[in-house]
Design a protein around this nucleic acid. Structure first.
Lengths: 225, 225
DNA sequence: ATTGTAACCGAACATTCATTCTATTGTCAA
DNA sequence: TTGACAATAGAATGAATGTTCGGTTACAAT
């Protein structure tokens, strides 16, 4: 159940189209629109595959209602009440983990590859206006970021970029230390000051040539309970 | 623009119905369904008022498409691209601020009063299975929670409750100190140990009679960007 | 009184749309 | 080979649905 790899190529295409259509239109597509988008020439075949997707638990349908198709959440729960289908939600790829001893590995096609199930829904206001296609998320491993008020298991949302403005909170790779860290970024004369978020911690200073910005922090999400 | 009080009662009703319909169905209603729900006997009148709501900036319509109505988000931006109408989102009331020197004031009807604009959309996975009707959010004011890795401006999501289990992260009001704080909760013999999240900080011990749990922390959201 | 206008109703109309039925193709096992 | 079955195509059907138009009411301005 809920394993996309068990689906046919067409069914995966339908799911993909459903997601992007909902993203761009705010309401579900008709079976005809699905057919055109996925190269299916018959409405009955779309209908057939939609029902397959319902059986597989990926969709729900309201029978005899136009556009009566909805995506079932990845949480597995059939359908929670009190749930809102609002359209200020962005689906962000959770591409991996921050490990202090390795640079952040960010695929080039962030935001355009939607086959993974590792997508998290976040409110647009957490993106601060950034283009959702260049946003990605990482899960923090370990307590090395604790001076930035970021702990083990936290999810950090980044905008992918290799530069930074003064005061930006960024993930930087430090050649000298051989690790990635999260700090506030300040360009000072010929060096760069990296200021921890915690007021009692001291800043560190590095050579611009040996520090590589990997992304700017937009938001932090911590789930506890 | 975007002032509900300027709308007619019918138009407000249409907006309300749009929201609840989307919440429960996952796709927009037809004009006929809107009419039945709001006591309008003519589809043309619904159409008329829908266009008014478009003019007022509350809705957008895709002409000639069934159910081609979408709510415009309160962010003011005309229409976010790349936006998803997924249904694992919960709307949580943002009821106020945590002030270290005052108890948290939680209205009794949390979750049932939806006329306010102070609602934030969060993913259900941040609730950890809690009933959305008993969930609320607070914005943290000041740095008094920094040892719990929670900073100024962070949004904390709570489940309203006046008890706690060992190890729970809770907001507690301390009579002796006259402040609310966020700590991990441990019942030890005749006293209660409140353990800061930060490993280098020491716990504090209080008398059970003088500490009042106000809610359990489910998640923390920090927007930086 | 007359005019103009916003809000409303009812009905007719034209599509859009989901459903259903029949038929064809390909695959795999008996 | 034959039979069963999944997947597909095409077309027909009817219900669902958005749009339009003529007419009505209420109210304020002229």
């Amino acid at each position: 159940m809920r394993d996309r790899s068990k689906l046919s190529e067409r069914q995966r295409g339908i799911l993909r189209f459903m997601e992007t259509y909902l993203e761009t239109q705010g309401f579900p597509p008709t079976i005809r629109e699905i057919g055109e988008a996925t190269g299916i020439n018959s409405t009955s075949v779309v209908n057939y595959n939609l029902n397959k997707l319902v059986d597989a638990g990926f969709l729900e349908r309201a029978s005899s209602k136009s556009r009566g198709i909805r995506l079932v959440t990845t949480t597995g729960k059939s359908l929670p009440k009190q749930v809102v289908a609002s359209n200020n939600i962005v689906r962000v790829p959770l591409v991996g983990q921050i490990v202090a001893s390795a640079p952040v590995a960010v695929p080039d096609d962030v935001g355009y590859y939607f086959d993974e199930d590792d997508l998290i829904d976040v409110s647009v206001w957490l993106l601060g206006g950034a283009d959702p296609s260049e946003v990605f998320a990482l899960r923090v491993k370990g307590d090395s970021m604790i001076d930035a008020m970021i702990g083990d298991g936290d999810i950090v949302i980044f905008r992918k970029q290799n530069y930074a403005e003064n005061g930006d909170m960024v993930a930087v790779w430090l050649d000298e230390r051989g690790e990635t860290t999260l700090k506030r970024f300040f360009h000072e004369n010929d060096r760069i000051r990296l200021q921890p978020e915690h007021p009692t911690m001291k800043p560190i200073y590095v050579d611009p040539a040996h520090c590589h910005v990997q992304g700017r922090v937009l938001s932090v999400i911590r789930h506890i309970g």
